[in-house]
């Protein structure tokens, strides 16, 4: 009897979670249906499996180009964030003076600022940088990466700073006596020890930057530079009536996320938990 109850509970929980994900089923099922099938019953399994809509959506969304842009922008943004904010956080944590305190507090305080408060003046400033210094901030992936690094710096420095404080300083001191430069000490001794928090910083920023819509929508107008959220937005503006095509398009955007989740599930859940609690 007890075993049966436990078994039923297991099944129940599984189906509850499955029901939770039912919208995903609905997209998959309808992405294969032709128009008539879709209007007959949106909940039924497709009768014919045709990848026609995937091919069409891929073409209309310019999916491969968007995927490439998203990968490029996310990878380099996260790379710069990890390198620059770990270096900064270590220096700030290990140099106990007024300046370090002020800089660190400024990083913390700006975490309070919502993006909407900064977006318009940021665009003005980027415009003047483009015009006066002739550095193209708009319509370049590098310009967007620059801005992503800026927006992610507060939380990343904050997370690294907390972690550095928990590492005993004696190791570094021993290395310094041995004649290693600060650069060597950091990259050879400190950075490898930061690995757990580096994973957290990477995960948090990958999720935020990959999914960000508003900032790229303001800085990238060139269609060839669109990221996945951007191309999804424009795709939906044009094809909402053709739901099967739209569903195939949505599935395409979800696939990379599922792959990322499957590869790094343990790290993601741990990283999210740590990032939230700190």
């Amino acid at each position: 009897m007890r075993i049966l109850v436990k078994f039923l509970k297991n099944i129940l929980l599984f189906f509850l979670a499955l029901f939770f994900l039912s919208p995903i089923y609905i997209i998959i099922a309808n992405s294969f249906k032709n128009r008539q099938e879709l209007y007959e019953n949106v909940l039924a399994l497709p009768e014919s499996f045709s990848f026609q809509y995937y091919v069409e959506a891929m073409d209309k969304m310019n999916f491969l180009s968007a995927l490439g842009n998203s990968l490029y922008i996310t990878t380099f943004s996260v790379l710069f964030i990890v390198v620059l904010s770990s270096m900064t956080a270590w220096m700030l944590a290990r140099t106990n003076n007024k300046l370090s305190n002020i800089i660190f507090m400024t990083f913390i305080a700006t975490m309070l600022i919502p993006f909407q408060t900064l977006m318009m003046p940021l665009m003005q400033l980027m415009g003047s940088i483009t015009n006066t210094l002739h550095i193209p901030m708009f319509n370049t992936r590098e310009g967007l990466i620059f801005m992503h690094v800026g927006f992610s710096s507060s939380i990343s420095v904050f997370l690294y700073h907390g972690f550095v404080k928990s590492i005993p300083i004696t190791l570094e001191e021993a290395a310094t006596i041995d004649g290693a430069s600060k650069f060597g000490v950091f990259w050879k001794i400190i950075f490898p020890m930061l690995k757990p928090i580096t994973v957290t910083v990477m995960i948090l920023n990958v999720i935020n930057i990959w999914n960000d819509y508003l900032l790229p929508s303001l800085t990238l107008t060139d269609t060839g530079l669109r990221t996945i959220p951007l191309s999804t937005f424009y795709f939906f503006g044009e094809f909402t009536i053709k739901w099967n095509l739209a569903m195939a398009g949505l599935m395409l955007t979800i696939i990379p996320v599922v792959i990322f989740y499957a590869l790094a599930q343990k790290h993601i859940i741990k990283g999210i938990g740590e990032g939230a609690v700190k």
Partner: peptide, 20 residues
């Protein structure tokens, strides 16, 4: 160690905030 990130941070967050 700190200047590169500070430069980016000031350009993207601090100056726009004050301009805002």
């Amino acid at each position: 160690f700190t200047a590169p990130l500070l430069l980016i941070f000031i350009t993207v967050v601090i100056i726009p905030f004050l301009m805002g």
